[in-house]
Amino acid sequence: MVTLYINGKKHTIDADPEMPLLWAIRDIIGLTGTKYGCGKGLCGSCKVLLDGSPVQSCILPISSVEGKQITTIEGSSKNLDLLKEAWVELNVPQCGFCQPGQLIAAAALLDTNDTPTDEDINEAMVGNICRCGTYQRIKNAIHKTVELKKQR
């Protein structure tokens, strides 16, 4: 039995402790917003926040995250919510598949950096592939979120 705290909820699951967090979230707990893209830590589709830090859940065994707070795309935080708003407004998603991972990476960036430069954004987002090529809009939407934050 492994206990996971996801979006503030406690889940005790019966699974191989070696199972990557991604599959526990998707196949056992049933939250499918976190995506599989590569399974090797290469694409960022599976990103979640682990005690506030962005991690690739596809390469993280559940045994290593016991007791830690996990936030998925279905979860909420001030930055994540504002980012989602900006994402919709600038019509960022194309196929949408990579976007949960992109949003998580962006939320982690804004959690530690109120006014990221383009360079900061490149660095924070370089681990996330978007095969549809929405990078320009992602960058604009992150800047837009900073604006939104100032207004509220």
């Binding site: 998707r26 939250l31 998925t72 279905e74 994402w87 919709v88 998603p93 598949f97 949003l103």
Partner: peptide, 18 residues
């Protein structure tokens, strides 16, 4: 705007994999 934008950003759009 895409009619599906909200579903995409909330992780509620159901792809085949989901």
């Amino acid at each position: 705007r895409s009619v599906d934008a909200e579903d995409y950003v909330n992780g509620t759009a159901i792809f085949g994999l989901d």
